[in-house]
Design a protein around this nucleic acid. Structure first.
Length: 671
DNA sequence: CGGGGTACTTTTTTT
DNA sequence: AAGTACCCCG
């Protein structure tokens, strides 16, 4: 029997050893969930299951990588590597691209949210809808339709203007995507699911391939993912799901807590295991977590059981405004580091909205504290990088009209909307793609010499770049493209400040570096491989990642992570619960789930190992105006005396102090 | 067609 | 406060 099992508690052991049939593991925060998963995989292999037969599904690529790293440590790379550990989306992509069966159908692009919006924008202008719809809201609806497998035309009747617009756009959106040879994120789950259900041979193949299925963060699955799992799991029904209903925080993108609450209905005969002993946090943190979450209705009633000492009391800091809050946090971190209590890498600052990170960054720099912002996607979102990506995507998939339109006149080369319109018209009349039309500019634009020359210049630039972008020379080809575009000069010419210049040049450099890093890690990878990777998990940070630095990230981004010292900032009504939850917009599809906001706080609290610091401000600068802020309602039921209070509003701030000093000096000087 | 100016609104969270 | 969208003029 395995030497590892002795290190597990009885519940963990049961979760590891129950290998056949459906198994639901309700794993509270910090209860050793990842440990159970890796042990389970190792145990399966010890029982003679081959690594190839095991599938572990996670929600982020990072989680998948981490799991693989843990598994490698346990069983060695040779045993760990054959195990499939990936996100639903990566798995779907792999299945659609052939996954070792056939190479057919593998030439498609993946459209991210920006591309999807581009498609809708095109359609909306073409259809001339009388009203200015918020397109991302329509996108949410289309996504919901797809995930519920509702075909165009089968939408439930509704007289909501957004539902009506969606009904109109939905079928055309699907058409467009197929015309562009593109899949969106939802397709990556729904399409394989459909095929599993309809194609018996295919289903058989995948069921035999993955005889043991394991799903992490099960509370975040949506309808389509559940359906996918039902179709994927074979007669043996060896499916193990791990999750925590109290940590379900993705309802706004269709996640169904219901899935974890009803697992035993979806997979009858399931075994259920509770992991409630918390090995992560000190008692004071768990007390607060239990108190906060116990107010929520509709949950598996349960409590985290402490295994550690009570620890330091949770601190609560009240600041007069956002700036004071940020400054205080930065100084507090500086103090914790310089006193040797914590290393920078042991510390995280968590917040509900990204905007809260902005103020903090300056103060941290001032204190000489190294930090990283998780999920900030900063460089990858800049215009230059998006354009470069557009070129790469056009090169990988000439049918990708969205990318073509994006880059055809960027940087400006004299191809304005009118010329593009003429090309598009000709393309439609002659049933050609827009790119093919551009290649035949002379025909399509009859005698407009200037436009023809401009478009020819563009297509030959694409052709030249294509030649430079073979296997194993992606970064090289990208550099060539940057050169040919004169992008560096363009940025130098158009930047309004030296700060903006640095940022933009830095973005381009970081992008090239990320391509290099990708190539180094995946020798012989193609352009398409790189683009899929980017679409599914964002760009690699290249160098400078990790290390001993403070982490800044959103509560969503913090899930699954932990730090010895955690700051939760901006604990005010409007942030937590977020304003948008309490006052939904007319066009919000998912709204009003205050319970989810509370779970978000619960997730934040349970990230802390040793010390937790909460903070809020009584006033805050929003949209240029100073507005009063009230404390988050989520602490209403918490006994104030359980906190170690630090009230900065009771102390004169620096401005007041300066005034007082000035008065004092005036008195002394005058007297 | 491109650049510069003005008016307006905004991200909550992400595969 | 800042970034974007739109409009007008060269």
């Amino acid at each position: 029997m395995s030497r590892w099992l002795s290190k597990l508690n009885p519940e963990q052991k049961q979760a590891v050893k129950t290998t056949s049939g459906p198994l639901l593991v309700l794993a509270g925060a910090g209860s050793g969930k990842t440990r159970v998963i890796t042990h389970r995989v190792a145990f399966l292999m010890e029982q003679g299951v081959r690594g190839e037969e095991i599938l572990g599904l996670t929600f982020t690529n990072k989680a998948a990588e981490e799991m693989r790293a843990r598994l490698r440590k346990m069983v060695g790379p040779a045993s760990a590597n054959p195990v499939t550990l990936s996100t639903f989306h990566s798995l779907g992509l792999m299945m659609l691209r052939g996954g070792g069966t056939s190479g057919k159908e593998s030439r498609f692009a993946i459209f991210d949210t920006g591309d999807q919006l581009g498609v809708l924008r095109e359609l909306v202008t073409r259809l001339n809808l009388g009203r200015n719809f918020d397109l991302s809201s329509i996108l949410t609806r289309i996504s919901a339709m797809k995930n519920s497998f509702i075909a165009p035309g089968d939408e439930p009747a509704s007289d909501d203007p957004y539902d009506e617009a969606t009904a109109l756009l939905y079928p055309r959106y699907i058409e467009q995507l197929s015309a562009y040879a593109a899949y969106d994120f939802d397709d990556l789950v729904c399409e394989p699911c459909r095929r599993l259900e309809q194609d018996a041979a295919w289903r058989e193949h995948w069921q035999q391939r993955f005889r043991y299925v394991l799903v992490d963060e099960y509370q975040d699955t949506n309808d389509a993912q559940l359906r996918f799992l039902k179709a994927l799991v074979g007669k043996e029904r060896n499916i193990c799901v791990v999750g925590d209903d109290d940590q379900s925080i993705y309802g706004w993108r269709g996640a169904q807590v219901r899935n974890i609450l009803q697992f035993e209905k979806d997979f009858p005969g399931a075994t259920k295991v509770y992991l409630m002993r918390n090995y992560r946090s000190v008692g004071s943190v768990l007390e607060l977590a239990n108190t906060v979450i116990s107010e929520n209705p509709d949950r598996h009633p349960k409590q985290l059981l402490p295994t550690r000492e009570l620890g330091r009391r949770v601190r609560l800091m009240v600041a007069p405004d956002g700036e004071a809050e940020a400054q205080w946090v930065a100084r507090e971190i500086q103090g914790a580091v310089s006193s040797g209590r914590h290393r920078q890498g042991d510390i995280a600052v968590l917040y509900r909205s990204n905007i809260l990170a902005r103020g903090l960054e300056g103060d941290l720099r001032e204190q000489g504290i190294a930090y990283r912002v998780l999920g900030g996607q900063a460089f990858y979102e800049s215009r230059e990088v998006k354009d470069l990506l557009g070129y790469l995507r056009l090169l990988a998939n000439p049918a990708d009209e969205i990318s073509l339109r994006r880059v055809i006149n960027s940087p400006s080369r004299g191809i304005g909307p009118k010329t593009v319109q003429r090309l598009a018209q000709w393309a439609e009349d002659h049933q050609r793609s827009l790119f093919q039309t551009a290649q035949a500019a002379e025909e399509a634009l009859d005698d407009d010499g200037r436009a023809i020359r401009a478009v020819d210049g563009f297509t030959s630039l694409i052709e030249q770049t294509r030649r430079g972008l073979g296997k194993g020379q992606l970064a090289e080809g990208l550099r060539g493209l940057v050169q040919r575009l004169g992008l560096i000069e363009e940025i130098e010419r158009t930047s309004t400040s030296s700060k903006a210049l640095d940022r933009r040049l830095g973005g381009v450099a970081a992008f090239i570096a990320s391509v290099e890093a990708f190539e180094r890690r995946n020798p012989g990878a193609t352009l398409r491989d790189f683009l899929s990777r980017i679409a599914l998990s964002g760009a690699d940070e290249g160098e400078g990642d990790k290390g001993d630095v403070v982490t800044l990230c959103t509560l969503h981004g913090a899930k699954g992570l932990e730090w010895p010292l955690v700051f939760l900032i901006g604990l005010e009504e409007g942030f937590l619960p977020h304003d948008r939850t309490m006052n939904p917009q007319e066009n919000d599809l998912y709204s009003g789930d205050i319970a989810e906001e509370r779970r978000l706080l619960y997730v934040g609290i349970t990230r802390a190992r040793d010390e937790l610091v909460l903070s809020r401000a009584t006033e805050r600068l929003t949209r240029g105006r100073l507005q009063p802020r009230t404390p988050s309602r989520f602490f209403d039921t918490v006994d104030e005396t359980s906190f170690e209070l630090d009230d900065l509003t009771a102390v004169p701030d620096e401005g007041q102090m300066a005034d007082m000093m000035a008065n004092l000096r005036a008195m002394l000087g005058g007297g």
